[in-house]
Amino acid sequence: MPVSIYRLSVPVFVRGLKVLSTLLEEAEAHAAANGIALEVLVNARLAPDMLPLSGQIQRVSDTAKNALGRLSGKGAPSFPDTETTMAELKARLEKTIAYLQSVPEAELKGSETREVKLNVGKLGVTFSGEDYLLEFALPNFFFHVTTAYDILRHNGVEIGKTDYLGPYG
């Protein structure tokens, strides 16, 4: 039996968002224990031309919800990128999870062949739904999850690979 687009997307995105929320809790604890203002972490970045932690969280959210919106053909909710606090970032992750969990599996039936058109850089690209999910949405999602992890780790938050992978079972 083939694996459904739903199974390849919703549980994967939700797991990644929950792991990221836990990493933000670790960051809060680290900041409190070390007298670091939370806005320092929220605005931290790895390089001057990269998005800060807040931007990474926003892109993770956008990637997950827009993927389901495109695959279902119904669009996704729009969240303005106005988060400036750790609490607001965690709330955005929760809103994203709630949206993902509200999408019925039936809405993604047949989406593997749905045409998805994107502007990637200056190029217009057309994917099948399956290729869009596997070749664009999931890699983009995990790029931003990993970058958020790296920002926190770079700023002294004591997290490791098992924190990134999250709990099983």
Rank of each mutant, 00 (worst) to 15 (best):
V19Y: 12
L138T: 08
K90H: 03
E94I: 10
E135P: 05
A29P: 00
L46A: 02
A67M: 06
T147H: 09
G35E: 14
L8C: 07
A27N: 09
A33Q: 15
V103F: 00
L20F: 07
A32Y: 12
S78C: 02
I5Y: 00
D81F: 11
T146P: 00
D131S: 13
A148Q: 06
E94C: 12
P167R: 07
L53M: 08
A76P: 01
E130I: 04
L17V: 05
L23E: 14
L165F: 11
G129D: 08
L165K: 04
A29I: 15
G169H: 05
E28F: 10
I57H: 08
N155F: 15
L100I: 02
K74A: 11
T113D: 10
E28L: 11
N140S: 13
H30L: 06
F127L: 11
L20H: 06
E135N: 12
P77V: 00
L71G: 06
P104T: 08
K90L: 04
V42N: 01
M50F: 01
A98I: 12
V157D: 06
G16M: 11
P2V: 09
E107G: 01
R70N: 08
A87T: 08
L152F: 13
S102E: 02
A67F: 08
P77Y: 00
F136Q: 09
A106I: 09
H144R: 12
E26I: 12
E39Y: 02
A91G: 08
K161A: 06
P11D: 04
R7F: 00
S111R: 04
M1C: 12
A137W: 14
A91K: 15
N43C: 03
T126M: 04
A98F: 06
A47N: 07
P48W: 03
L133E: 10
P77F: 01
